[in-house]
Design a protein around this nucleic acid. Structure first.
Lengths: 225, 225
DNA sequence: TTGAAGATGTGAGAGGTGCCACGGTTAGGA
DNA sequence: TCCTAACCGTGGCACCTCTCACATCTTCAA
């Protein structure tokens, strides 16, 4: 069951079975529906979460109410780790994009585990480093690429993580509205819609509600660069 | 001497004197001039660096040769830590903005230190978490703020780290050309120049070569939001 | 001192993107 | 089943920002 998902999570990958089971037992589990919020930006809280099933979005809101998504996370990915090591309130709001379930661990319990278990520490460092590298890539994309390019890149990333290959193309059930997709790439819904319509008219993909079928990965990749 | 700078570095802050001195002895030192490059994006290498003196810029180059600066780092700040935990080539080019000196540590030596010294691990995690939070802030700024707003924010950040308060305002010797400042905020040199000229004409600051004097922090802060 | 290269100021034109407006479509609850 | 709210598709216009072009001003080495 969901122990398998946890074992795949980078945080746990270096643990042996016994240690993983023990750590698992000190984590509590929760379950939410699409649209429900796990915590808000600005909340206090120091729990670390791992997605067991479903998808969530990490978002922040600007002063005038506009929203920007930092990431879409799926099974095995963790979040909330910023508040663990960088003291302060939650830096993002986490909302379920689908029904979803989570395992969570408190700051204190995690710290206990870190002592004497350098491999867990190392796993966390690896995870943070990877997130930082990705964040830097996002910055570069915002500076260098236009909206269609960023949309193409986002679709390819989602395909990579959630896509299923079939004979008519790669089916990507991203579960995002175009509004959410727009917030993810930092653009307006209308502009993203036009980019998608353009890709579809070229035969690169087919649009379906909350999902796309990518028919020409090659050209889409070229457009992303 | 430069041991003081190292002791202030977050990486070392949790160590006692004895441990810090020992770690210091396993680090080697180097010195470069303005404009010289420490390593290039794409290079292999797994050394961690700490700036002892001077300033460096972390930059990446897009496919068509345009450049984008991720950060300006000064004394006590570290870089190169991504290649330590996220295997792969250097993700950015590091160039000296002023003459500068560094202490460096190899991957293997660092790993030895991490074993049995959870506080060092914790220091690294804190540092990475803080960097990640900043990267997310940069993303939000790119999405939500216009160029003048980003310029104002960059100036305030530089003032915070490198500024000296005098009776006629805060003197910020950032050592950056307007071209570099533009790359830092992800805009063209011309647009940044016009933003600066506008701020100056309003009496918020005074422009000097490779530095500014901020006379009205209050209004500049308001413009940054 | 004096060129030359680099850095800074400023204007004009073009293009991408955001915002507004509106109609059509889909989904989910009464 | 119907009805309402959310979501999707598309055109038009305004504005910000980029690019290009060029003049002026430093800096620094010969």
């Amino acid at each position: 069951m969901d122990n398998d998902v946890l074992r795949q999570a980078p945080l746990f990958s270096a643990l042996d079975d016994e240690a993983a089971t023990a750590l698992r037992s000190s984590m509590s589990e929760s379950r939410l529906r699409r649209g429900e919020v796990l915590f808000h930006e600005g909340d206090s809280g120091d729990k670390l979460y791992v997605v067991l099933d479903g998808k969530v979005k990490l978002g922040r809101t600007s002063g005038d109410g506009r929203e920007n998504l930092l990431a879409i996370l799926g099974p095995g990915q963790m979040f909330g780790e910023l508040s663990l090591f960088d003291p302060g309130p939650r830096s993002a709001t986490v909302t379920c994009v689908t029904d979803a379930s989570f395992a969570s661990l408190s700051h204190d319990d995690l710290l206990k585990w870190l002592e004497g278990r350098p491999m867990v520490s190392h796993g966390l460092l690896t995870q943070l480093a990877s997130r930082l590298r990705k964040a830097n890539d996002v910055v570069a994309d915002l500076v260098f690429s236009d909206v269609p390019g960023r949309v193409a890149k986002a679709l390819l990333d989602l395909a990579d993580r959630f896509g299923r290959t079939a004979d008519d193309g790669v089916h990507v059930h991203h579960d995002l509205t175009q509004e959410e997709l727009a917030q993810l790439v930092g653009a307006s819904r209308e502009t993203v819609n036009k980019a998608l319509a353009d890709f579809a008219s070229r035969g690169w993909l087919r649009l379906e509600p909350r999902s796309v079928v990518i028919m020409d990965i090659e050209r889409l990749s070229r457009r992303a660069r």
